[in-house]
Every structure is written in structure tokens, then in C-alpha cells.
């Protein structure tokens, strides 16, 4: 269906972590976050864009990110997100957990 190279859907539960990691680079709006993730993963990870905004909203409710409406360089109104202290803590925790899961899955997948 797509002419793009084969892409993987994100593992469930990792989107928040990726978003938080991205925001450690700096304040950006949703579109930029999606672009950033895809670029860094060399287009392997594709953010399901529709899920990005609810996830951002959830993260704001949980206090991991903070947002404000600002004008873009092209003079359009957009919502800019930045990471909070709680967000950084969450990121550290999720990263650790992620490593453990990956290691576990790796062990399961090792040839018997």
C-alpha cells in the first residue's frame, strides 16, 4: 500500500516515552514531535499521528508536559509542548522498564 520503506508500528506503551525523550531536545509542537521521532528512528518507527494528540493531552493531565499556544515562524497559531520535571522522572523510569522488557523479550526469542 505504501511506497515508503517498511515501517513498524510503535510498541504499545512506548509512545509516551518517545515523546518525552523528544521533548528533552526542546519545546516543539505536535507535528514537529512526530517528524522528529520518525527522523531519528530512520523512518522505521511511524507515529500513528491520531494517537499522538490524545497521548499529549493525557501526558499534560498527568503533569509530564506543559503546553502553551504560540505563533509559528510562519505566523500560524500552534500549541507548543515542553517537558516538566515530573516528565523527566517518568522518562527515566520508562526507559529503565523498557530496557528490561526488551531484554526479557530478547531472551524469549533466543533460539532454544
Amino acid at each position: 500500500m505504501s511506497v515508503l520503506p517498511s515501517r513498524a508500528e510503535l510498541l504499545p506503551g512506548t509512545l509516551a516515552m518517545l515523546v518525552l525523550k523528544t521533548l528533552t531536545v526542546g519545546t516543539m509542537h505536535g507535528y514537529a514531535i512526530a517528524q522528529h521521532i520518525e527522523r531519528l528512528s530512520e523512518d522505521v518507527l511511524r507515529v500513528q499521528e491520531g494517537t499522538l494528540y490524545p497521548a499529549l493531552q493525557m501526558m499534560e493531565v498527568k503533569g509530564w508536559v506543559r503546553s502553551e499556544w504560540k505563533l509559528t515562524p510562519t505566523k500560524r497559531r500552534a500549541r507548543y509542548y515542553s517537558i516538566t520535571a515530573a516528565g523527566r522522572k517518568q522518562l527515566a523510569q520508562e526507559a529503565k522498564e523498557f530496557e528490561r522488557v526488551i531484554a526479557a523479550v530478547g531472551r524469549v526469542m533466543q533460539p532454544a
Binding site: 509542537h29 505536535g30 491520531g50 494528540y53 493531552q57 499534560e60 493531565v61 498527568k62 500552534a78
Partner: peptide
């Protein structure tokens, strides 16, 4: 956290509207 959550439930409509704007922009 409680405050953020309460704010979300109280001003749900505004939050949703804003998210619509965001998505359209995207």
C-alpha cells in the same frame, strides 16, 4: 496531578476543541 485532572474534567469541552485545532493544524 489532582488539579490537572480536575481541570481536564471541568473544561473538557475546551480541551477537546483545542485538540481539534491542533489536529487540523497538523
Amino acid at each position: 496531578g489532582l488539579w490537572l485532572r480536575a481541570r481536564y474534567y471541568l473544561f473538557r469541552a475546551r480541551f477537546d476543541r483545542e485538540m481539534e485545532d491542533e489536529m487540523r493544524f497538523h
